[in-house]
Design a protein around this nucleic acid. Sequence first.
DNA 1: TATATTTGCAACCGGTTGGTTTCATAAACA
DNA 2: TGTTTATGAAACCAACCGGTTGCAAATATA
Lengths: 106, 106
Amino acid sequence: MRRDIFQAVADPTRRAIIVLIALQAMTPNAIAEHFDTTRQAVSKHLRILTECELVKQEQQGREIYYSLEINKMKEIDKWLEQFRKIWETRFNQLDKVLSTIKKQKK
Amino acid sequence: MRRDIFQAVADPTRRAIIVLIALQAMTPNAIAEHFDTTRQAVSKHLRILTECELVKQEQQGREIYYSLEINKMKEIDKWLEQFRKIWETRFNQLDKVLSTIKKQKK
DNA sequence: TATATTTGCAACCGGTTGGTTTCATAAACA
DNA sequence: TGTTTATGAAACCAACCGGTTGCAAATATA
């Protein structure tokens, strides 16, 4: 069972759930109302999100509130870091080219 | 056929390919040498990456050089933007709490 | 021209995925 | 206590995924 954050985020429904609970905790029932699937399917998604620690639960009576572990999202950001370096360099190089053209026009 | 950048990046081999060709273009054969799979499997991954425009090809005789479409990677960054806002806010709030504690100590 | 090299594509296969229906459990409430 | 409500887990299923082998096409080379 491969279960990492990238695989978790690959599913569009799971991405929508993540966005939904990013700002406020919600129960599975409340979450399911936002989608065109059964509550059980949402429950499965929540299990996957919980397994890779993207989501935390808080029991409140018979209700369970799910909310986003925002810090875990930084792992994606961390992986992107290496590419951010590249595209910033590329941008600077483009900048150089543009200023060279500008100089030549003068 | 669901084919978006998040699904493309979900597979660890594809992520490794992306990193590999981020800085220099490579042929499928050269890429395959870095992995414990057949050239055809790599070819399949390259097809998926091409389909969601994460990768571009450049034919050179009978060889095809694949390189990363670095700009496409920004789409992930764009999606992360909304969470970045949240975790920066949380950090600032934590900062406030810390400075409050500091003041109380005084 | 005959042969070797580089590549993509089709067919197949076992495991995974995302969904459903059904059921069990625990808390709230009449 | 019996019923309703909220939830997770199990069993099942069709579709998909990542891998393989085999083959065809195009280019380079003898």
